[in-house]
């Protein structure tokens, strides 16, 4: 799993670099300073951060064989994750209405690609979490339950870590 994450570093590194290279290139179309809604994004960053906390709690519960709390925290994590994805969808819709489509400019293409990839990762994570809850409920986990929860947890934290970087580099540092 760690190897996969190490490999993912290069994937997101590539996307982030592309964005960094192109973020200033919007040629008269809306640029980062015009469209970003920092308060909204801060809230969703916070949500994702908290989901990491609930994930850790789930892993701990799983280690202690506490099935009920494991399921509870996993569900909470999935909910927070969906909230984040929802926030992102809302953000994309607003951008689109403000005239920033995927093909509008290089800035928009690279922005949507980067955050879109991240969003897909979060969505996959949410699906994994929900599937995990279902499988635990029906007692169909193959292998060691705590380990499975932990693996999903590692993936989830990684997605959060990537967002930490994206949030700073993309949203906060002025272009």
């Amino acid at each position: 799993m760690w190897m996969f994450l190490g490999s993912e570093c290069l994937l997101f590194g590539g996307l982030i670099s592309t964005y960094m290279l192109y973020r200033g290139r919007h040629q008269g179309n809306p640029g980062p300073a015009q469209v970003f809604d920092i308060p909204l994004t801060s809230v969703s960053s916070f949500v994702l951060l908290m989901s990491s906390l609930t994930m850790v709690l789930a892993v701990n519960a799983a280690k202690e064989n506490d099935v009920r709390n494991t399921k509870l925290w996993l569900t909470a994590t999935a909910l927070l994750g969906s909230l984040f994805v929802g926030g992102q969808v809302y953000e994309f819709t607003v951008f689109y209405k403000e005239g920033l489509g995927f093909t509008t400019s290089l800035f928009s293409s690279s922005f949507f690609t980067l955050t879109g990839f991240h969003g897909v990762h979060v969505s996959v994570g949410v699906m994994m979490l929900l599937a995990l809850v279902a499988i635990i409920s029906r007692d169909r986990v193959t292998g060691d339950r705590a380990e499975v929860v932990e693996m999903v947890g590692l993936y989830w934290h990684f997605v959060d870590v990537v967002w930490v970087v994206i949030f700073t580099l993309v949203y906060l540092i002025p272009a």
């Binding site: 760690w2 190897m3 490999s7 993912e8 570093c9 947890g153 590692l154 959060d160 870590v161």
Partner: peptide, 23 residues
């Protein structure tokens, strides 16, 4: 997040190495 939530601090050095090489 990496060291505490992902408990890399407590994990095998090898895992850390794998991740840090990538990073």
């Amino acid at each position: 997040i990496l060291l505490i939530f992902m408990h890399l601090k407590y994990d095998s050095k090898l895992f850390g190495a794998m991740f840090y090489i990538g990073l």
